[in-house]
Structure formats: structure tokens, C-alpha cells
Computed example of a mutant assay.
Amino acid sequence: MNGMSGAPSGARPLRLGTRRSQLAMAQSGMVADRVRQATGREVELVEITTYGDVSKEDLARIGGTGVFVSALRDALLAGEIDFAVHSLKDLPTAAPEGLVLAAIPAREDPRDALVARDGLAFADLPDGARVGTGSPRRMAQLNAWARSHGLRVETVPIRGNVDTRIGYVTSGRLDAVVLAAAGLNRIGRIAEASELIAADVCLPAPGQGALAVECAASDPELAAQLAGLDDPVTRVAVTAERSLLAALEAGCSAPVGALADLMDDGQFSELRLRGVVGTTDGSSLVQMSITGPVPASDDEARALGRELAESMLAKGAAGLMGESTH
């Protein structure tokens, strides 16, 4: 989409709200470049501090849901910014009043990445290795995988930006940390990963690797322009994942993993949705999948997510989530 000719002469710059972290700034900068091309308007980044940025508490303890999002949404509704860029996995599943999810651009690699000492893969970590992650979802699956292979690892809750987390490994405090591959890719540090963890071992967070571009519903013209950044395949995939999360009535910090991907059947006409719920110690997991035609709409994608959630709940998923939060 080019749309350059539609830019009004002398129009003020569009204000893009973003968190202050290196990763958020990199992600927002990428979107800003695409919006400049699409609208012909200048875009300026407006840095906003969120509760999740200043709180020192464990993300799982403060609830995870929306802690990196609320301040940006408040700024949107107050007219202080024109649009915002979020990591989709941070967005609550409930649609907010007065805002519209204008675009979900093409997804980066959704997998998790291991950064380990001596370039080790997860399977090669020493017995009793200390692995840092702020995610109960990662803890549940990595502990389960280790148990099934006769390994013993200790998952350690950590917080902080990419530098801080990788620093735990380089300083020798931890043997490894697990981060989203998409984030490392976006800041040019994927080479520091010692392994990209297969989704068969650890399903990512719903929406991981995708960005969300949000604006006020009261500006339909901007929403239409931003829609040019939307990737339809990414949108139906993450919509199915987030529908699963919502139907399980789980927040962003719950130990739920999900990934929807196109099946390579020669025509890419089928979408497979995989989901997992587990206890953080890895002793119990409910892991299931469902395959259907690629959804033609958000409603069809949501229906796929709800169908898988019902199957997982019938297998005891809700009980596992309850155990994990105590």
C-alpha cells in the first residue's frame, strides 16, 4: 500500500505511543517506518512508562494481563497519542471500549529461544541447571520436557530487559535463560541464542511474535490507513490462539501456550491450532490440537479456539491452571 498522495499538506506528525524499552522502541520504529510509507505523514515516537515497566514484582504475581498496556491505552483514549504499538502477547483478550485493533502485521518467529552458557542446547544442560524465565508457561513445559527425558532443571523466576536477562548467564548466576526469539530478532541479537526451542517442546504464548497496532475508534480514517499493515494469515492465527486463551479464562501470565500455523499440505488450506496448559513444575500437562480449514474471518478463528478450549477443559485444564497459581 502506498497512499503517499493522500497526505494533507502540512499535516502534523502522527504520534505513536510506545514503551521505553529497547525492544519496544525497535518494534515501534519498524511500524513507524511502514506508517510513513503508507500515509506520507511524519511519525514521532512518544515514550510512555507502563506499570509493568516500573513494578519490581513478579509478573505472574501482579497478574501480567495488561500491565504493559493500560498506560498506552489511557493515552490513546485521552488523545495524547494517535496510535500505539504493543506486543500482541501482552494484550488482554477482552476488546477495550473506544479502541480498535487496526492492524496485526506479519508475525516474526513465534518460538522461544534459549541463551545458555557455552552455547549449550536445552537437552545438553547439566543436571540441576538453573534456567531463568519470567513465564509460568515456559516453566511448565520445560520442566515437563526435562522430566520426560530424565533431566533435572531448576526454573528460576526472572524479570528485566534483554540485557539484564542475558547478563544472568554471562555473569554465571544462571546456566541459561529463555526469551522470545522475535524480540532477539528485532534488536539484532538472535545470534546469541544457543537454540531455537521447537514448538513441539515448548508452545509459545498466544500471539507471541506478533505486534498489535491500536488506535481510537473515533478516528476511522487513521484506522483504515493503519489497516494497510495488516497480515490476514497472522490475524486469523493469533485470533484463534487468543480465543483459546479467553475461553480457558486465563490471563497473559497463566501457564497457557498456543500456536496456530498453516499446514503444508501443498495448498496451505488447513490451520492447525495447538494448545497446552500445565502446572509450573511440569508434573501435569494437557496438550491438544485441532485442525480445520483456514478461517475466512475472525469469527471463524475464534470458533476454532473455543472448540479446542472446550476439549482441553474436558481433559481437566482448568484444574491445572488453578494448581499453578497457588
Rank of each mutant, 00 (worst) to 15 (best):
Q208M: 13
Q208R: 04
L211H: 00
A212Y: 02
A216T: 11
P220A: 09
E221A: 14
E221S: 11
E221T: 13
E221V: 15
L222H: 05
A224I: 04
Q225E: 15
G228R: 13
L229C: 04
L229G: 05
D230E: 08
D230R: 02
D231Y: 09
V233N: 02
R235E: 11
V236F: 04
A240T: 01
L245R: 15
A246D: 03
A250R: 05
G251Y: 01
G251P: 08
C252Q: 11
S253K: 00
P255T: 07
G257P: 01
G257R: 05
A258Q: 05
L259S: 04
L259P: 03
D261V: 01
D261A: 11
L262Y: 01
L262H: 04
M263V: 15
D264I: 10
D265Y: 04
F268Y: 15
F268S: 14
S269Y: 04
S269R: 12
L271K: 05
L271V: 09
R272M: 13
R272W: 09
L273T: 10
L273W: 07
R274Q: 12
G275A: 10
V277A: 08
V277Q: 00
V277D: 04
T279M: 08
T280A: 13
T280S: 11
D281H: 03
S284K: 15
S284A: 15
L285P: 04
L285F: 09
S289D: 09
I290K: 07
G292E: 13
A296L: 10
D299F: 00
A301L: 07
A303S: 13
L304Q: 15
R306W: 04
E307R: 14
L308K: 03
A314W: 06
A314S: 14
